[in-house]
Design a protein around this nucleic acid. Structure first.
Ligand SMILES: [Zn+2]
Ligand SMILES: [Zn+2]
Ligand SMILES: [Zn+2]
Ligand SMILES: [Zn+2]
Lengths: 153, 153
DNA sequence: TAAGATACGATACACTGTATCATTTAGTTG
DNA sequence: CAACTAAATGATACAGTGTATCGTATCTTA
């Protein structure tokens, strides 16, 4: 169980710094994502909000709130799966431009990584050979996490 | 303009070898993709089929046919965009396991590449550092192709 | 030709995301 | 505090995408 209270107060501070509002609705959506290791779709988020609250969360609100949270880099969107995951740097000062993700094909959990410069250089070299001048991408790589490998060994 | 006739007869041969059928419908869908440098959605494919034919192509047929063409590796599906593109190795004997793609953000054209082993090794190393034992992925990298870079210079 | 398998046509439907407008809430100013 | 303004939310309708399902047609094979 993640200590979402500490994480959310860090986010609260950042919002104050940036002069933006972390409303109860936004906080609720972010909390759902912070407590989840796997990525969730917008409708899955709405369902979880409605599970532990009497005030129904419409899916449309989820989309709006996700837009806001993405702009602030509090959550990221996995383009391949079209799902959302909280940033793993909510409680630190780490800055990232484009995040990269590893997605476990077995347990679906997602790890946010920073690719080494050598890996990026190797990608850029392959792109150049194929007639592409520049690449800038959020890489999403599927695989198997250690936990699942050991569990199935 | 691509010489789709030669490409399609190569595909025809492969179908004979594999004991499968390249029906007129399947040929029609494949032809649309062969003649297009950019990736197309299922509904876009249906529209193009209907543009130059009086026999309407239902979207549902397109999906079924795309399933077939994907199984045979005649076309690939871009997971990020949810669009389809013909394999660039239709008329040769090149074998690939997981293809990788470069997608131009300006003109949308797609290049199918084979990542160098060093690039793959660099990716695997980053994954290992993040607690992922194995990766196996169809990488899709956005960028700018040389043509577009020169055109906008 | 008859039986079975494969491919296709057609309809309905679920899911996802957007557009739009009304309403409420939160800040701002006099 | 009252009035104003902007931001956020509620609510409805709708378009696009993909699937499920059933019936029909075509091909294969004995
Ligand atoms: Zn992040
Ligand atoms: Zn796992
Ligand atoms: Zn290919
Ligand atoms: Zn281009």
């Amino acid at each position: 169980m993640v200590n979402s209270k500490n994480i959310l107060s860090s986010v609260e501070e950042k919002c104050v710094e940036r002069g933006i509002r972390l409303t109860p609705r936004r906080r609720q959506v972010l909390d759902v994502l912070v407590q989840e290791e796997a990525a969730l779709s917008a409708y899955e988020i709405a369902q979880r909000c409605n599970a532990d609250s009497d005030n129904p969360m419409p899916a449309m609100s989820v989309y709006r709130i996700l837009d806001f949270l993405q702009e602030q880099q509090f959550v990221h969107r996995l383009e391949t799966a079209n799902k959302y995951i909280s940033c793993s740097h909510l409680s630190c000062a780490h800055e990232h431009l484009q995040p990269q993700f590893l997605i476990c094909n077995s347990c679906r959990r997602v790890e946010e990584i920073d690719l080494s410069s050598s890996a990026v250089a190797a990608m850029a070299s392959a792109a150049s050979a194929a007639g592409f001048a520049s690449i800038s991408s959020q890489l999403e790589v599927n695989g198997l996490c250690d936990r699942c490998v050991h569990a199935n060994a």
